[in-house]
Every structure is written in C-alpha cells, then in structure tokens.
C-alpha cells in the first residue's frame, strides 16, 4: 500500500469529520480571539509598545491553541476505539501518524488564519509575508511533535495533564527561533534569515525523528 496515499486518506478522513461536525475550528478561532483579548487587558498596549508585546501574545495564543488541537487529535479514535481498526489495515503506522499530523496541522493553520489578521487588527502590528512564513514553518515542526505526543498520551489516564508537560519543553526550539523571526518581521532588531534557517533545521530534525518514533508509539 502506498504510504503517501494512506496518509492522505487518513488526513482526508479527519478533515471530513471536522467539516461535518465543525467543532474544532470555531472553538480554536474563538480561543485565539479570547487570548488576544486577555493580552490586551494584561498589558498596557499602545502603538509604541505593540511590536514588542504582540509577538509574545502571538506565541502564547498559538502554543495553547496547538495544545488544544493536538489534545483532540486522537479523541475520536479513542471514543470509537477506531485506532486499533486503523492499525489492522495494511497501512503502515508511520503513514497513519503522518495523516493525523497533516490533518491536525491543517486545523492549526486554519486557526492561524484567524489569529494573524486579528493580531494585526487589534494591535496594529505589520502583517507581512515574513510573519506568515515564520509561523507556518514553526507549525510544521510543532505539529509533528504535538501529534506524536498526542499519540503517546492517548491511552494514558491523565492525558490532559501530560500532553502540555511533554510537548511544551520540546516546542521551545520553535518558539525560540519563531519568536526571533516574528520579532524581526515586526521591526524589532534580530536576524530574520538566521531565525528562518534555524526553523527549517528544526523542522527537518523533528519531522525525521517523529516519523522514526511513530512506529513505536502507534504499534501495539
């Protein structure tokens, strides 16, 4: 069985079920807007301070939206016990994992479609291609790690507690590099190209590592 087609089929199934229920994307969109609202009240924001505060709010909102999104990745499979059925098909566990990661990152990207314009709208920070590229590059690596650890904790009792504890420390490289890239995209000092290079490096490293590990996590 072609692993690429299997992965696409799994991603399509997840996105189709999201399209039919329309649960996650509205919830995530509402969540990030609420996060921006809290940021607005937590900081004293004016046109001068906005570029130095907005990147932080962006990453906080994105990271916690990601935790919600990836925490739900295996929820349906768990409730219906369908993961075992999927693993019994000839599709390789890595392909199933890749499909789940693709679907979850698509949901997170949809949430960014709301977050990034809303950030510019509310805080008056520049909305640029550089900003979008930095956030998308970070999303790739964050999605592969998030999905791997969502699979790791899927069958553990205290999964809601464990997922943030495990994933957040491993996301830090993406927040370090992505934070720097977004800051320089918003006009603060710092090398944008260097940060993007780092993001690409981290993406490659973690996509390879998570695909290698997926076999041990999903295989039962």
């Amino acid at each position: 069985m072609n692993p690429f087609r299997a992965a696409i089929a799994v991603a399509r199934k997840d996105l189709l079920s999201e399209w039919r229920t329309r649960e996650m994307v509205p919830a995530l969109a509402q969540f990030v807007v609420l996060a921006l609202l809290i940021g607005n009240f937590g900081f004293q924001i004016d046109s001068r301070s906005a570029p130095s505060i907005a990147p932080g709010i962006l990453w906080l909102a994105l990271v916690f939206a990601g935790l919600i999104a990836f925490g739900r990745t295996f929820a349906a499979e768990r409730e219906q016990s369908s993961l075992e059925a999927m693993l019994m098909t000839p599709a390789s566990p890595v392909a199933i994992f890749a499909g789940k990661a693709l679907a979850a990152s698509a949901l997170l990207i949809l949430c960014e479609v709301v977050l990034l314009p809303a950030l510019s709208l509310f805080f008056g920070t520049p909305f640029s291609a550089e900003l979008v590229i930095a956030v998308l590059l970070a999303t790739i690596g964050m999605a592969s790690l998030g999905c791997l650890f969502a699979a790791v904790v899927a069958r553990v009792r205290a999964r809601e507690l464990l997922l943030p504890l495990l994933v957040l420390p491993l996301w830090i490289p993406f927040i370090v590099a992505g934070g720097q890239a977004v800051q320089s995209a918003m006009g603060l000092p710092g090398s944008y190209d260097q940060a993007i290079g780092l993001l690409v490096d981290f993406d490659i490293l973690f996509v390879v590592l998570t695909s290698l590990a997926a076999r041990f996590v999903l295989d039962e």
Binding site: L148, V156, R157, L161, L162, L165, A213, F216, V217
Partner: peptide
C-alpha cells in the same frame, strides 16, 4: 510524571522510552 500518572506496564514503559 509520565511514570507516575500512568499505570506501570508495557505501554507506559514504551511511552517513557520515547
């Protein structure tokens, strides 16, 4: 914490290894 929060056994050991 992973070891504490999930029941000891094969599954937990695999998770912890990852």
């Amino acid at each position: 914490l992973v070891r504490r929060l999930s029941e000891a056994g094969r599954q937990t050991a695999r998770i912890a290894a990852v």
